[in-house]
């Protein structure tokens, strides 16, 4: 076992992990942060996306031992002071959530994307979300919500 210091959603934690363990396993099984979803465990669906030092990564392909000292944000850390982030609020308001299983991954991907793209066009948004599989919505309302969040954040 390897001892690691991770900052998760702003709080420093020490965990013991196995050398081959994925960040997805550490988050869900050791830290009970089950908002991060396993969909394929081979990097093909985006459901387990989290932010590692601000950049979106697939937790199922990320070795926990590579995350020592790093700053991790999961879906549980996105709300601030009990308020939904504009991305979250717009996903709800636009009806972009059906089964919701892909939603945490979509939120994390969109957060990172909007941080670097203040006024994205529709094609940019679609390209940013291309690694997140959603089987319910046909993406239409998700794209609409991300665009509305961008506008809200620009105000």
């Amino acid at each position: 076992m390897v001892q690691l210091k991770l900052t998760i959603n702003g709080f420093g934690r020490e965990v013991l992990v196995q050398a081959h363990e994925t960040l997805l396993f550490t988050l869900r099984e050791r830290l009970a942060l089950t908002g991060t979803k396993p969909g394929c465990e081979q990097g093909a669906c985006g459901s387990c996306t989290v932010l590692l030092d601000g950049r979106p990564v697939l937790a199922c392909l990320t070795a926990s031992v590579r995350c020592g000292g790093k700053d991790i944000v999961t879906i549980e850390g996105v709300e601030q002071n009990g308020e939904l982030h504009p991305v979250q609020r717009q996903l709800v308001a636009k009806g972009a959530i059906q089964c919701g299983y892909c939603t945490p991954g979509i939120v994390m991907t969109a957060l990172a994307f909007l941080r670097e793209n203040r006024r994205p066009g529709e094609n940019d948004i679609r390209a940013a979300l291309a690694g997140n599989v959603c089987r319910c919505t046909g993406y239409a309302k998700i794209v609409e919500a991300v665009r509305a969040a961008a506008e809200e954040m620009a105000r």
């Binding site: 879906i75 709300e79 939904l84 996903l91 709800v92 939120v107």
Partner: peptide, 14 residues
């Protein structure tokens, strides 16, 4: 919006 949308968008839905 679906009733459980807020639970799902925050990762709370089990």
């Amino acid at each position: 919006p679906l009733r459980d949308a807020a639970a799902k968008v925050t990762g709370r839905a089990l």
